[in-house]
Amino acid sequence: MKAFDLHRMVLDKVPFEFLWEVALRSLYTFVLVFLFLKITGRRGVRQMSLFEVLIILTLGSAAGDVAFYDDVPMLPVLVVFITLAVLYRLVMWLMSHSERLEDLLEGKPIVIVENGELAWEKLHEENMTEFEFFMELRGQSIEHLGQIRLAIMENNGQISVYYFPDKEVKPGLCILPEGCSERYTSVPETGDYVCVRCSKIVALEAGEKRSCARCANPEWSKASRAIRVT
Rank of each mutant, 00 (worst) to 15 (best):
E114A: 13
W120P: 12
E106N: 00
W120V: 13
I148K: 09
N127I: 06
W120S: 14
I152Q: 08
C174D: 06
F131I: 04
Q140N: 06
E205K: 15
E121I: 13
C215E: 01
V202H: 09
S181Y: 10
M95T: 15
E102Q: 05
D103T: 14
G146L: 07
T129L: 01
D192E: 14
I201C: 12
E125R: 13
A151L: 12
W93N: 02
C198G: 10
V169W: 12
K209S: 15
E126R: 11
V187M: 09
Y162C: 01
Q158I: 02
G172M: 13
V111C: 11
E143I: 02
H144L: 08
N156G: 05
E136N: 08
E106L: 14
E106H: 00
V187N: 10
Y184K: 03
V169D: 07
R197G: 09
V111Q: 06
H124T: 03
D166P: 15
F131R: 10
I175M: 01
L137N: 09
F134C: 00
D166E: 14
F133L: 03
M128W: 03
G107T: 06
V202R: 08
E182P: 01
V169M: 09
I112K: 10
E106K: 02
G172V: 09
L145V: 08
R197Q: 09
P171H: 06
E178I: 14
K170D: 00
E168Q: 13
Q140M: 14
R183M: 08
L176Q: 11
K122Y: 10
K122I: 02
L101E: 01
N127Q: 06
L176P: 01
C195P: 05
E102A: 11
F131P: 00
H124R: 14
R149S: 14
E132F: 03
E178W: 00
E126M: 12
T185L: 12
N115F: 12
I201V: 15
P165C: 00
S181K: 12
V196F: 01
R214Q: 03
K200F: 12
L176S: 04
Q140E: 12
K170A: 03
L176D: 04
Y184Q: 03
G139P: 04
F164V: 06
D192P: 06
I112S: 12
V194T: 13
E143S: 11
L137P: 05
W93Q: 02
H97W: 06
R210V: 11
H144C: 05
G157A: 02
Y184R: 02
Q140H: 11
Q158R: 09
E121F: 12
Q140D: 06
F131L: 05
R100G: 02
A203P: 09
I201N: 10
E168K: 13
R197E: 05
L204H: 15
V113M: 03
L137R: 07
I148R: 08
F164A: 07
A203F: 15
K209Q: 15
E99K: 14
E154G: 07
S98D: 00
M135Q: 04
P109R: 05
R183L: 03
G116D: 05
K167M: 06
G172S: 11
M128A: 04
L105E: 00
G207M: 12
I110N: 13
